[in-house]
Design a protein around this nucleic acid. Structure first.
Lengths: 232, 232
DNA sequence: TAACAGATGTTAAAAAGTGTTAAAGCATCA
DNA sequence: TGATGCTTTAACACTTTTTAACATCTGTTA
């Protein structure tokens, strides 16, 4: 299913193995193009659009590592898997530097190769759905929830886990009432007297952290919770 | 952990080496049965239930390859690892055709053998699961779990097995919280105070290893665990 | 309005958790 | 056997969170 519309560039100088692999991959639903050496591989890559490269390391004219380096200049993200002859330490290391995503040592089974291909593809696809940016502007401050940093424009404060979580909840509820009960269950997991007092301590900490901008207020709503306000 | 309930059939004609290996494997928690030659090995296999075969290639009466072929007739899936005398290419290939999952060349270290055993077992147990990813990109670093190497593009660091396992768990959970409890049970097998402190020591080691790239952070989440982040 | 109970504000101490380095313990290797 | 390398334990400094203590405030009621 995912196989659909995935195009693989395969570079393998051994014609027997090359055709075998090529046929196998095609049978599995991947559009596969076979190059007989490194130079041909690079030329094909430059012309077409591929989703994955399978490069034999030892090839005449231009070896796999060199091809990988050249490919990386054009495309930083395309997944590259090397086919290595033995477990050769130095070469493998060189391969990392050339930007490999995985490698597989001959002899290998078709099954194994297929597993690696799907693994690498899944990763490269899932790559794009990454990291929502969670930066909040609070008056003159800037708050980065992911990095747990609070900056006033000059200095940067590291926040503790609890400070970080609580400030985020306040930001998400700016102008509205953040109910004690809700915050306690969300951050402290349990709404009881001691956790409530602990939360009050953290409200005090946040007020101290944010006091450089007078337009910022964490206002108490008696018996209910807190309202985070940025007066404009 | 997974050592439990794993039964190994070991065929080795050299009594010294055989007993040494047998004791070692038993000490590591594997039920191990020692056969002094190929014929005995096959008979034992036919009678009992094993999870892994370790076969010396050169044995009197019946060599390892022959035993492997016979075993494969009975059981297609059981993992087989050969112990080969030298690095003999022809033999190795023949071995793979007989259905080997891995081979190891004498002389080898106990550690190396153990690593292969666990690797092969993991593969055969998680058979239907996906092939594990072996290379992780971490900022400017490249981490190869299989080879236990961490490269920053210039130099290459060997990792110890604990460093290796912990870094892998962090990578697999990038951006999410790796719970202490989970990591301790997965790597140290038991969640107690001392193992937790040991884990903290390894977190410090990894931070040191990765400090050349400032966009990499192993962030503590108080009371829960660690969040591995690669800031983009 | 005075008086009170309950809620909140704030600071500090206690307790729990973490960061780091070094030494001790251990298994394997030569 | 001694050398080596990995892991655990110990030690100490530091951080984070909780608990305690006391001051202040809010809303209610006599």
């Amino acid at each position: 299913m995912m196989s659909k519309n995935v195009k693989i560039l395969l570079a393998e100088d051994d014609a027997n193995l090359g055709n075998l692999l090529c046929d196998y991959l095609k049978a599995k639903g991947y559009h596969t193009v076979l190059a007989a050496n490194g130079e041909e591989a690079f030329n094909l890559f430059a012309k077409g659009t591929y989703n994955l490269c399978l490069l034999d390391v030892m090839m005449p004219i231009k070896d796999g590592f060199t091809v990988a380096k050249e490919i990386r200049k054009i495309n930083e993200k395309i997944p590259i898997i090397f086919l290595t002859a033995k477990s050769m330490k130095e070469d493998t290391l060189a391969g990392f530097q050339a930007g490999a995503d995985d490698y597989i040592t001959k002899p290998f089974s078709m099954e194994e190769l297929l597993a690696r291909i799907t693994a690498v593809l899944r990763r490269s696809i899932g790559d794009n759905l990454e990291q929502e940016k969670t930066i909040f502007k609070i008056g003159k401050y800037s708050f980065d929830y992911q990095k747990r940093l609070l900056s006033n424009g000059e200095e940067v404060q590291k926040l503790t886990s609890k400070e970080n979580d609580l400030l985020r909840l306040l930001c998400l509820n700016e102008g509205k009432v953040l109910e004690r009960t809700y915050a306690l269950k969300a951050i402290w997991e349990d709404d009881n007297y001691f956790n409530a007092r602990s939360m009050d301590v953290y409200i005090a900490k946040l007020r101290k952290h944010l006091k450089q901008d007078e337009s910022i207020e964490i206002m108490n709503v008696h018996g209910r919770g807190f309202r985070f306000m940025i007066h404009k």
